[in-house]
Each structure stands twice: as structure tokens, then as C-alpha cells.
Design a protein around this nucleic acid. Structure first.
Length: 203
DNA sequence: CCAAGGATTGGC
DNA sequence: CCAATCCTTGGA
């Protein structure tokens, strides 16, 4: 099925290309806030405004799946940027990431929450819920190209809200790496997940 | 092969 | 607070 587009091709030109992702995950994580994450599934278009992300690094980042090196699961994080990394966590929830940085060095941005815009029939707060609402799952969407495919990011006006950075969620096992303020949220947005960012410093 | 544990969620 | 649920990883 072809993706319908308007006569001017305007929609298509707002999709972010590979160059956007080919930077460090902290920069990409912050810049993703306020942009629109879209999944076109047949005739159904599901979309959210991104309100919460987290940055994950390579082998040095003890909170990252890349900490064991390019294992079967994490190898995709070492690949080219602008590709999806979807995994199942706790046997229950799918988590959607965008691979960032240069090929050969692992990093990614986890999408943790969004504001429902189109076609969402479930909650969009929390990484597992976000995947369910967008219809994204590991079996069919791991390793797909995010520039030119059915899942992509659309450009949007800069967010009015302040951007907060705070420690990442549920990575206490990572020692001092748990303290890195690599969780990014739109201040005051009601779709941001728990725990609420406290002591997050304004950027 | 086996044991341990996790980038979560929802219910009590 | 805690169990659900299964995939991934490291080690024997």
C-alpha cells in the first residue's frame, strides 16, 4: 500500500533523514522533544508528539545494552544511525529506540512517552505503553530504516515548554552511570512518565 | 545447558 | 509493594 502524500510533497520533506541521527545521543534525545513520531500501518496512521526520551551510550555506559559489546541483541546499536532498535523487556513490554552516532560506535535514544495526536487507542506514557499505542513491536519493527520507511520522525515547531534533564529511569544497577542526567522531558507535560523528574535542571 | 536478572507495567 | 513473563547474557 502506498503512502498518500499531499500534492506539494510537503509532508515528505519534513521527515528527518539519517544526518539527524548521526550525532551523539544526548543531542538527538533533546532535539527529538516536540517532534512527531509516526507509524504508518496500512491505511492507519498513528502519531504522537515526543515528550520524553533517554540517551544510551556504548560499551562504557554500564546502563546501556551495548555494555557487553555487539552481542546478538545489541549489535544493531553498533550499526548505522537512523535505524530502529526494538527489544522486549521483562517479557512484557516493547521498547522503541533510534540508533544514533556514527557506525561502529554504539548509542541510541529510547522513546519513553508521547502526547497522542493521531490514531492512538492506548496510553502513550511509558516506553511499553508508547509502543503498544503506536503498534510497534520487536518482531516486525526491529532494525527498520527510520528515514523513508513506515516509521519516521516529522519536523515540528520548537517546543514552548522548557526542557529538563534528569537521571535515567530504572538503571540503578549501572553504578555511577545511573547518575548521568540523560533523561529529557518537556517540563510540566502531563504525558511524561513516572517517576516525575525531580531536581531536573533546566537547559 | 542453566540460573539470574532486566532501559516496565498494572494491580493490590 | 510486588508479581507477571520471556528474552538475553554470562558462566559452568
Amino acid at each position: 500500500m502506498r503512502i498518500p502524500r499531499c500534492a506539494t510533497g510537503e509532508k515528505r520533506s519534513t521527515q528527518l533523514g539519517r544526518a539527524f541521527y548521526a550525532r551523539d545521543p544526548q543531542t538527538v534525545g533533546k532535539e527529538l522533544l516536540g517532534k512527531v513520531l509516526v507509524h504508518v500501518d496500512g491505511t492507519c496512521r498513528r502519531a504522537v508528539r515526543v515528550v520524553e526520551t533517554e540517551a544510551y551510550g556504548g560499551t562504557e555506559d554500564l546502563a546501556s545494552h551495548a555494555r557487553f559489546g555487539p552481542t546478538r541483541r545489541a549489535a544493531i546499536m553498533f550499526g548505522p544511525p537512523g535505524v530502529s532498535y526494538v527489544y522486549l523487556i521483562y517479557g512484557i513490554s516493547h521498547c522503541f529506540n533510534a540508533v544514533t552516532g556514527e557506525e561502529g560506535l554504539a548509542s541510541a535514544v529510547l522513546f519513553r512517552a508521547g502526547e497522542p495526536l493521531e490514531g492512538c487507542l492506548h496510553a502513550t506514557t511509558g516506553p511499553g505503553n508508547l509502543c503498544r499505542a503506536l503498534g510497534i513491536r520487536r518482531g516486525t519493527h526491529n532494525g527498520v530504516d527510520l528515514s523513508g520507511g513506515r516509521i519516521f520522525i516529522e519536523e515540528a515547531p520548537p517546543p514552548q515548554e522548557r526542557i529538563l534533564s534528569s537521571p535515567r529511569v530504572n538503571v540503578a544497577f549501572a553504578g555511577s552511570w545511573a547518575e548521568k542526567p540523560w533523561r529529557y522531558t518537556l517540563s510540566g507535560n502531563r504525558f511524561v512518565s513516572r517517576p516525575w523528574p525531580s531536581g531536573g535542571r533546566p537547559l
